[in-house]
Write a protein that binds this DNA or RNA. Structure first.
Lengths: 122, 122
DNA sequence: CACAATTACGTTGGACGTAAACATC
DNA sequence: GATGTTTACGTCCAACGTAATTGTG
């Protein structure tokens, strides 16, 4: 699993369109299509519904969108912290939470029943 | 950033020995040495102190060890959740926390001043 | 000299682009 | 037929292993 592919996925998830996403990412559309397919193969789950011409995130896709966002944020913050650790004397404490889609906070359709904490990607 | 390299790093961090880590990972020692060096170049920070013959984690290395562990756990849990989301109706809520090394929970040498919550990689 | 990390060098799998084929409205 | 995704095919880089080199106790 590579952060590069996570960025690819999030761009497609935001646009629901591989062609537009590829332009944003400055790569070609076939390359992006292949990378998304390989990601689905690696995770062994369908992230997009391709029955329509327009791509649509599956339930698993929505879940993975949240997790991928969290992962990239943590990576970015880590890179920052590695350089700032020597300079700053007082930092911040961040709380994050992860919930399964089928937790009591969601109904059986995966709809969210409660609002997440501010800043929490639920 | 690839999870493969994170696993490489954590194995070296645990053994303080590239040769032993390489055997555990079933790769050769030069390959592992190079991957660690490239990781340090990518992060633009020294993760290991090489003044001794025995490798030693730097402060940044200790911080990255914590973050890498968190990242890999989140990736693994995500893979699980993607398959379990359709089956389970009741799941669990997990809380995680991330603190900068220089936060009030650490003194100016980066030593931990308070014990983390059970299960929290601080 | 023994042990451990790095450098040198050749090989190969995978990420990429171009071109063509396929699918949906 | 216009728009958008997938398949085919060739190229290139980066991850790898083997061998040689350097460094430290």
């Amino acid at each position: 699993m590579d952060t590069r592919v996570l960025k690819y996925f999030l761009t497609v998830a935001n646009t629901n369109n591989i062609t537009k996403a590829a332009k944003q990412l400055h790569i070609t559309q076939p390359t992006l299509s292949r990378q998304i397919m390989e990601l689905e193969r690696e995770l062994d789950v369908a992230l997009f519904d391709r029955t329509q011409r327009q791509l649509q995130l599956t339930k698993a896709g929505v879940l993975f969108q949240q997790r991928a966002t969290t992962l990239l944020q943590l990576v970015d913050q880590t890179k920052d912290d590695l350089h700032q650790q020597e300079k700053e004397l007082v930092g911040s404490v961040n709380l994050g939470c992860v919930a399964s889609l089928a937790s009591p906070f969601h109904d059986e359709d995966g709809q969210r029943l409660s609002k997440g904490v501010s800043g929490c990607p639920l």
